[in-house]
């Protein structure tokens, strides 16, 4: 495999070049497209580092979902920043700070002792009691469950923030950022053909996440993408923001997670601890309900604040 260092060096150079290009890009649209490409290249780097879980998250959420959100923002922004944008002094200051942070991070990485400190052996040692075989899932849902709880719960305030942008008289309407395209037979065909496969892939990612790379965030992102596709093709309507069933589904995942976590105080002696012997089924249960809630949250984040239809 003498080609591998050349490929890695090429990837690294490509990403650096893309980063510079994004900063130098004249239009917001070009910068966002560059950012999405950057995310996909970064996913390749994670694959090279054999961190397939992170690669999938980066491609689905970092490049895909964030890219679509930024595209929407770029479309709403005026081409020229009012007042001509930041002055030269501010630009230099930002550049110096960014270079400083990057240099400090590089210094830390380069000064790591050999071998670098790692918790990997500890995780490998403590994985069997959780019943899952994918160490990433084990860490996320058993060893560091509090982080996972917070990062799913934080999506709800984010969604409330998006909804808070609605005009008063639009409240109670359907989210308005995903206007159906004027009828296009190819998009309709895609929205009819792709979802069965997309839903299968999404469910597989969650189910396989216990033992192989995958998990709720990756699976939920695929499910949300299928939903958004069907809505954009005009084949289905989004629920109104006041829809009770939708709101219960939104909070179901975090509530089940918290309930199991609280039960852990009595059954296993600590908040978010899982009782021995039931760890695997409980982890799967948490993953499944969180997938439902997270998929709904991601789709609604893309759908934007409620808007009155003309």
């Amino acid at each position: 495999m003498s080609m591998a260092p050349a490929v890695d060096a090429g990837l690294a150079l490509l990403i650096l070049g893309l980063g510079l290009w994004i900063i130098a890009a004249r239009s917001n649209f070009a910068a966002v497209v560059g950012f999405m490409t950057y995310g996909l290249m970064l996913a390749l780097v994670w694959v090279r580092l054999t961190a397939v879980d992170v690669a999938m998250t980066e491609a689905a959420l970092g490049a895909g979902l964030t890219g679509v959100l930024l595209l929407g923002a770029a479309a709403r922004l005026p081409a020229e920043a009012p007042g001509g944008g930041p002055g030269a002094g501010l630009r230099v200051l930002v550049a110096v700070l960014c270079v400083g942070v990057a240099a400090a991070l590089a210094g830390v990485v380069l000064s790591l002792p050999e071998p670098a400190p790692s918790l990997a052996p500890l995780v490998a040692e403590n994985l069997p009691p959780t019943g899952v075989k994918n160490p990433v899932t084990g860490v996320l849902l058993a060893h560091r469950a509090i982080d996972t709880l917070l990062e799913t719960v934080v999506l709800i305030p984010a969604l409330i923030g998006v909804w808070a942008l609605a005009a008063d008289r639009a409240w109670g309407a359907r989210p308005g950022a995903l206007t159906p395209r004027p009828s296009s037979s190819s998009l309709t065909l895609l929205a009819q053909v792709l979802p069965p496969f997309g839903i299968l892939v999404g469910v597989h990612l969650v189910w396989a996440g216990a033992d192989e790379p995958g998990g709720k965030f990756q699976g939920a992102a695929v499910l949300a993408a299928m939903w958004v596709l069907v809505v954009m093709a005009g084949l289905a309507d989004l629920p109104k923001v006041t829809n009770r069933l939708m709101r219960y589904t939104l909070v179901l995942g975090p509530l089940v997670f918290v309930a199991i976590g609280l039960a852990g105080i009595w059954t296993a002696g600590a908040f978010l601890a899982l009782p021995a012997g039931y760890a695997k089924p409980l982890i799967v249960l948490i993953e499944v309900v969180l997938t439902l809630s997270v998929a709904l949250m991601l789709g609604l984040l893309l759908a934007g604040p409620p808007k009155e239809r003309a």
Binding site: S184, S186, L187, L189, L190, L194, F197
Partner: peptide, 16 residues
Amino acid sequence: LLALLAGATVGQLLAG
């Protein structure tokens, strides 16, 4: 096959 499907659709949408 999925790349074919996505490519054909995106091509149509962009051309439109």
